[in-house]
């Protein structure tokens, strides 16, 4: 059964707007562009490190639109005191990456 993506479409729209505001190159944002945005959340760096590991699914050091949405989703969860999981829950893997 097709698992619906945990990121809701209205949240995705919001994340896409942030993604585009960071001037992606070929649809990708490098770590140094994403880093200030995630640091803005005031979350500890080790948490952000784990958020990055989980969202940079292809481990290419950059986030595409979907990976960025996963990162933002995890940051918002952490801000609501939801612990960042050790591994990416299947529902969070973007449909494009399954």
């Amino acid at each position: 059964t097709e698992l619906p993506w945990a990121v809701k479409s209205e949240d995705k729209t919001k994340y896409d707007a942030i993604f585009d505001s960071l001037n992606p190159v070929d649809g990708f944002l490098s770590g140094d562009k994403v880093k200030p945005v995630l640091l803005n959340s005031k979350l500890p760096v080790d948490i952000l490190g784990r958020v990055w590991e989980l969202s940079d699914i292809d481990h290419d050091g950059m986030l595409d639109r979907d990976e960025f949405a996963v990162a933002m989703f995890l940051v918002y969860c952490a801000l609501e005191k939801e612990p960042v999981p050790m591994s990416l829950p299947p529902a969070l893997v973007p449909p494009s990456k399954r």
């Binding site: 770590g31 140094d32 995630l38 760096v45 490190g49 784990r50 990055w52 989980l54 050091g61």
Partner: peptide, 13 residues
């Protein structure tokens, strides 16, 4: 997998 986190691709490590 436990994300070990290679600093080469992770800007936070």
């Amino acid at each position: 997998q436990f994300p070990t986190g290679s600093s080469s691709t992770n800007p936070f490590l």
